[in-house]
Simulated assay, not measured.
Amino acid sequence: MKVSDILRVKGGTLYTCQPDEPLVKAIEIMAEFDIGSLAVMEHGELVGMLTFREVIHTLAKNGGSVGTRQVRGVMDDHPMSCTPETELDQVRPMMLERHTRYMPVMDNRMLMGVISFYDVAKAVVDSQNFENKMLKAYIRDWPEEETGKNEPNFP
């Protein structure tokens, strides 16, 4: 399974902000749409990712306030990314190794979407459930072996 399969199921909605926006506005967008990340775009290009992790670290460092900070000052300006053609078996260890919960999907310099660790886990579970269903159907329809002349025929 490839990342493009997740994006196809997930749909094309992409939430973004600009690096010079006030952090408080970005947090309001994240809360309004119940999302854990925003792709930070400038002049049509991805320049970073803002996730709840960066927001929480900022709040912890500043006594629970974000003040007048801008997104640029707290965003991850070197997010790990993948392509639509990346296999999920490659994405899982990448996300686990760097504790990444949100990963931009890039096709050259174009942002195609953002996948979350939840998206990846759900795709793996759905795939395993489908495989289990197919295996159970195959076993249920297992052809009976013909018994030889000298073999007993047990029911």
Rank of each mutant, 00 (worst) to 15 (best):
I29D: 01
V66C: 08
C17A: 11
T83S: 15
T86A: 14
F33I: 00
L96D: 15
C82S: 09
V124F: 15
V105Y: 02
G73I: 00
H57D: 11
H43K: 14
N108I: 09
L46H: 10
D5G: 09
D20E: 13
H99L: 10
V125M: 07
E21Q: 08
V91D: 09
I27F: 10
L111E: 11
R109K: 14
E54P: 01
F52C: 01
H43F: 09
T100Q: 13
K10C: 08
A121D: 01
K10S: 10
L38D: 08
H57C: 00
A31T: 01
G11L: 02
K61H: 03
L23P: 02
H78S: 04
V9Q: 02
E85H: 12
T86K: 05
S4R: 14
D76P: 01
F117V: 11
P22R: 01
T16G: 00
R101Q: 05
E85L: 09
K61V: 05
N62R: 15
G64F: 06
H78Y: 01
G44W: 10
V24Q: 00
V114H: 11
M94I: 15
L88D: 07
T68V: 04
T58R: 05
G67F: 07
H99D: 10
M49D: 08
D89A: 15
G64H: 01
L111A: 10
P93Y: 10
Q70H: 11
D119T: 08
M49P: 03
D76Q: 07
D107L: 12
R109F: 12
G48Y: 07
R69G: 01
G63L: 02
G12Y: 03
L88A: 03
F52L: 04
R72K: 13
M95F: 14
H57T: 00
I35F: 04
K25F: 06
M41S: 08
E85S: 14
V3R: 02
E32C: 02
T58I: 03
T100K: 13
S37G: 03
G64Q: 06
P79I: 01
L59N: 11
I27W: 08
S81K: 01
V24I: 13
S81H: 13
V74Q: 02
V3A: 02
V3I: 04
V71Q: 02
S65K: 09
M103R: 07
M95P: 08
C82L: 13
T86C: 12
G44Y: 11
G67Y: 10
V24H: 02
L7T: 08
V120H: 12
T83G: 11
R98C: 10
E21K: 08
E45R: 15
R101A: 01
D107E: 15
A26K: 05
R53F: 10
F117T: 05
V124M: 15
G48N: 07
G67T: 10
V125E: 11
G44E: 08
P84E: 13
